[in-house]
Simulated scan of single mutants.
Amino acid sequence: MPTEAEPVAARASRVSRRFGEHLALRDVDLELEDGQITVLLGANGAGKTTLLRLLAAVLPPSAGTVEVLGVAAPAAASGRRARGLRRRLAYLAQRPSLDPEMTGGEILHLVATLYGLRRRERRRRVAGLAAAFGVDGHLERRVAGFSGGLRRRLHLAAGLVHDPQLLLLDEPAAGLDDQGRAFLWAELVRRAGDGRAVAVVTHDLTAAERHAHKVAILDGGSLLACDSPGALIAELGRTAVAVTAAETLERRALERAVAGIEGVAEVAASGGRGRVVLARSDAVRRVLAALAASPLQVLDLEVERPSLASVYRRLTGREPAELLPRRRGTP
């Protein structure tokens, strides 16, 4: 539960959202607290972007309530309340929308001006964000000549130039290289440390484990779990043995290879790979020995320790690879 030191910046209570006959969100409860990074995980269609848009006051819920930065029903806010919300939150959608004819510096200064920043403060923030996202050497260039990664970095810098209290980011690392992702997470961690509330949709489980204070796992429009990475892994994570074979692995053959071993919870196989999930970590040695002695043409055995990936598999029955965003043009 939030404490006085961690006030709630945004709250969704029993929220549902329909698009025609399609129920995109179902009875979701979520709180975003100041000073914390909350990561939203889920496959395509899980409801992550819809939830983020509700919290960004872009969409109203079909049922339930939303409160953002002290404003109830923020999607219906108008006048001074709406302007106040826009100054205090940032919603960065997946696809950057930047004028290709403007330079990077012109875009950052324009956005800062629209938010009412004075000239000295505007220069300071533009310089700081340009350095933070590694675009300071490109501010004189037209955006038309930027790579996709540079456009993404500029998009992120522009979205944060007004120093929002609440940051809502939808796949902000998409299109970024390793350096760009490092810039991004360093900036988000810094802002959370300064008391900002941050919500991020990402498929990067490693970054989520390392940086998130809370991870919310959604599937089919429902919130399945929300807790710290450590708590989720301690409660739901499982050790597994990953099997790579020289031939197609059948689940029944893998089950026969580990039959009778106490502590085996689940067996799965697809193509030349399989996985033996364990309810007890002390079964690892017995499983490894049984697989090595089996008639299966085993090429490699790898022990997978409990992780967010194992939590996601257990809760959703899906592979973490399904978290990857679809490329444009794919259904």
Rank of each mutant, 00 (worst) to 15 (best):
R120Y: 06
A9Q: 10
P60D: 01
G47M: 02
S13P: 01
R118A: 15
A9F: 09
V39D: 04
N44P: 03
R18Q: 04
S294A: 15
I261C: 06
A130Y: 10
L323Y: 06
A216C: 07
H138L: 15
A283F: 05
R141M: 11
P61W: 00
D177S: 09
A112W: 06
S147E: 14
R26L: 07
A207W: 01
R151W: 02
A257D: 00
G271T: 07
R95S: 14
Q94D: 14
A245I: 12
G145Q: 08
R152L: 04
N44I: 02
R95K: 14
G148R: 13
L315A: 05
G116T: 06
P96I: 12
L299K: 14
E4P: 05
G193T: 04
A75C: 12
E302G: 10
G137T: 11
G230S: 14
A173V: 06
A76Q: 12
R256L: 03
S78L: 08
E255I: 09
D194L: 14
M1C: 12
L278H: 01
L167P: 00
G272M: 12
A131T: 09
E33H: 11
A207L: 01
S62F: 00
S310R: 07
E121C: 12
L249C: 11
R17P: 00
G70E: 01
R95T: 13
V298A: 09
L139P: 01
E266W: 08
G42N: 04
A199I: 02
P172K: 06
S78W: 05
P60Y: 03
G329S: 04
L156N: 11
T113A: 11
V198R: 05
A76S: 09
R280H: 13
A130S: 13
D29M: 05
A246D: 15
R123Q: 14
R318E: 12
L167A: 07
D163P: 04
R210L: 10
V276G: 08
E247G: 06
Q94E: 15
L291I: 13
G180S: 08
R153T: 02
Q165T: 14
T244N: 10
A46D: 00
A144C: 05
T113G: 13
R118F: 06
P96Y: 05
A182M: 07
V135Q: 14
T206G: 13
L315M: 12
L169N: 07
S222R: 15
S97L: 11
A186K: 12
R124D: 14
G193D: 08
R141P: 01
R153D: 03
R14H: 12
G159K: 07
G237M: 04
V68R: 00
D34G: 08
L296V: 13
T65N: 04
D29F: 01
A12T: 06
P7W: 04
L296C: 09
A127K: 00
A208H: 03
M102H: 08
T202Y: 02
A292T: 15
A231W: 02
R313F: 08
S270N: 14
R313S: 13
D34P: 00
L114W: 05
L184S: 01
L184K: 07
L54G: 01
G221Y: 00
A46F: 00
R18H: 13
R273A: 10
